[in-house]
């Protein structure tokens, strides 16, 4: 495991290095995923470019529109403890707090976890349910993409080789929006989810005006449960209606058979936990 380690101070410098070394370069932020890949010999980059010294990528704060800006190198722990995050959405705080252990959360960064695109991570489904977007820069300029559209497969995103995530923008929530994050952990407290459900819902005049449901750990990416959302739209959120909507996620998820459960079990758990998440929103 030998490589040149770079610690640029500016985004432009990081981009320059990324372009210069091309496929031989690998970005690192907190390193919780990258170091494992390096140690297992699964990646062998000649150049590792750290983003941690770039001040512009750090920090968490309210945006002028009442939304939230989370710098790409903010740690999960910083996000979990941020008053601004909690003020916007306690469910988002909970999603950050659900990640692994405090040791991991102190190290792992919000942008890094989005770029790693492990479908079992906690924050991405919640960020997607809240309609968050990431800002990405490259030598060609900046672009914004919804968190929901960032991951396209296991550990795979739409990011090009010369792009860097700089921040996550969470829009202000419409008044009356409720959100929740639930994580099914049948083994240990610090495990990845067997299934997780992030849901946000706004009720108006006793009916569902808006609902977003995103599931984690049950597909190659976080999965937006559009059929379930559609079944709720405009409906009175009775227990029966929520159960009917939740039942639809069974066919929307695409889980793997693995040591956290068979695919069939995970489908059923996706249904159970979606129903629980929806009930929690309505009964909150």
């Amino acid at each position: 495991m030998t490589y040149d380690y770079h610690e640029p101070r500016e985004v432009a410098e990081a981009l320059h290095l990324l372009v210069k070394h091309g496929e031989d370069a690998h970005l690192i932020a907190g390193g919780t995923a990258t170091v494992l890949l390096l140690r297992q010999g699964l990646i062998r980059p000649g150049h590792v470019i750290s983003l941690r010294a770039i001040g512009a990528l750090s920090g968490i704060g309210r945006a002028p529109d009442g939304g939230l800006r989370i710098g790409a190198t903010a740690t999960h722990r910083q996000a979990e403890r941020s008053a601004d995050v909690r003020a916007l959405s306690p469910a988002l705080t909970n999603a950050f707090a659900s990640v692994a252990t405090v040791r991991i959360r102190n190290q792992a960064t919000v942008g890094g976890s989005l770029a790693h695109a492990d479908p079992a991570q906690d924050p991405p489904p919640m960020l997607a349910a809240l309609g968050a977007a990431v800002t990405i820069v490259s030598p060609r300029g900046a672009r914004s993409i919804a968190v929901e559209d960032l991951a396209v497969d296991h550990f795979t995103t739409t990011l090009a080789g010369d792009e860097i995530i700089t921040e996550v923008i969470v829009p202000p929530l419409a008044p009356g929006t409720r959100a929740t994050y639930v994580k099914f952990l049948p083994r240990t407290a610090d495990d990845y989810a067997t299934v997780s459900v992030a849901a946000a819902m706004r009720l108006a005049d006793g009916a569902v005006a808006d609902a977003r449901i995103v599931l984690g750990a049950v597909g190659p990416t976080p999965i937006r449960a559009r059929a379930a959302e559609a079944a709720l739209a405009g409906a009175k959120p009775s227990r029966e209606r929520l159960a009917q909507a939740a039942a639809l996620v069974r066919d929307e998820v695409d889980p793997l058979d693995d040591l956290r459960g068979s695919a069939e079990y995970k489908r059923e758990m996706a249904r159970v936990w979606t129903e629980r998440a929806l009930l929690a929103l309505v009964e909150a």
């Binding site: 497969d153 550990f155 795979t156």
Partner: peptide, 12 residues
């Protein structure tokens, strides 16, 4: 004889 390139995320 041939060569196959496979990529799973960062692993090439």
């Amino acid at each position: 004889q041939g060569t196959l390139a496979v990529q799973i995320g960062p692993v090439r």
